[in-house]
């Protein structure tokens, strides 16, 4: 069930027939995905099915060999020249990325900067805010993820759950149109998963467009507008949580769900 973008409202994220190889390995085999603005899409599937690669293709951390991605109608990483696609310069790609939030499995906070500077660095570096403005914004965002008292700590002084919340605040600081989460709770102790999911849930309710790769099926059922099941580099089926998680039509989906639920 793919949702075509209407002419009046371009899709927040549109992945069109993307193929990706790592050497001889064909990891994405013609993926098509459309995410409407404000929609929460959760991608599930077995390890190695291409979920993370799909996210990395969306913000052009990985270049697809064929196919393309667009955000609000704007091509990412390439531009159209006649009937061909031409690679954009690094500078323009970086500017495009600053409009796409990305939250990593391993947080990847900058260990030599304080929590506040981790969040405030990007808006200053890309020239959107002055230093004091960025610091005010960072304080607000850190308060929003419940870390108002940790602004002067260094990332390694925090627990995993706190670090991931800082990473979410860091992604939010650029006010991205869409935020991509790559298994945001997989590196966390079970007792810390809840605090991170609560922050993501809060974002989902605020109407931010989210694409979340996760193994938390219960969480997917709770917040997803749409669940996408991927296997072996392809989208096997997608639909509402009730459709995909409770009444899967594909044998492969049923098989996967029976193992993880």
């Amino acid at each position: 069930m793919s949702v075509p973008a209407t002419a009046t409202e371009p899709a927040a994220v549109d992945v069109f027939d993307v193929h990706k190889w790592y050497g001889a390995q064909h990891v994405l085999k013609g993926v098509r995905l459309t995410v409407r603005p404000g929609e929460v899409t959760v991608v599930v599937g077995p390890s190695g099915s291409g979920k993370s690669t799909l996210l990395r293709v969306i913000n052009h951390l990985e270049k697809p060999e064929s196919g393309h991605v667009s955000l609000n109608g704007e091509l990412i990483g390439v531009r159209r020249q006649g009937t061909r696609l031409k690679e954009l310069s690094e500078r323009i790609i970086l500017a495009q990325r600053s409009r796409i939030g990305f939250v990593f499995q391993n947080f990847n906070l900058f260990p030599h900067l304080t929590v506040l500077d981790n969040v405030a660095a990007a808006p200053v570096a890309v020239g959107r805010l002055s230093k004091p403005q960025a610091r005010d914004l960072a304080s607000d965002l850190l308060a929003r993820v419940g870390l108002a008292d940790k602004t002067l700590a260094y990332p390694r002084q925090l627990s995993g759950g706190q670090q991931q919340r800082v990473a979410i605040a860091r992604a939010l600081a650029l006010r991205p149109g869409v935020i991509l989460f790559d298994e945001p709770t997989s590196a966390l102790d079970p007792e810390l998963v809840g605090e991170v999911l609560a922050v993501i849930k809060d974002l989902a309710h605020s109407g931010t467009t989210l694409v979340i790769v996760t193994h938390e099926i219960g969480f997917a059922r709770e917040i997803a507008d749409r669940v996408v099941f991927m296997d072996d580099g392809r989208i096997v089926e997608q639909g509402t949580p009730a459709e995909v998680l409770d009444h899967p039509r594909q044998e492969r989906t049923r098989d996967f769900l029976s193992k993880v639920l």
Binding site: L94, R97, S98, R99, F102, F104, R170
Partner: peptide, 11 residues
């Protein structure tokens, strides 16, 4: 490197 690129920080 990935986090810095993902944030779109200039090279």
């Amino acid at each position: 490197h990935e986090a810095a690129s993902a944030l779109g920080l200039p090279k």
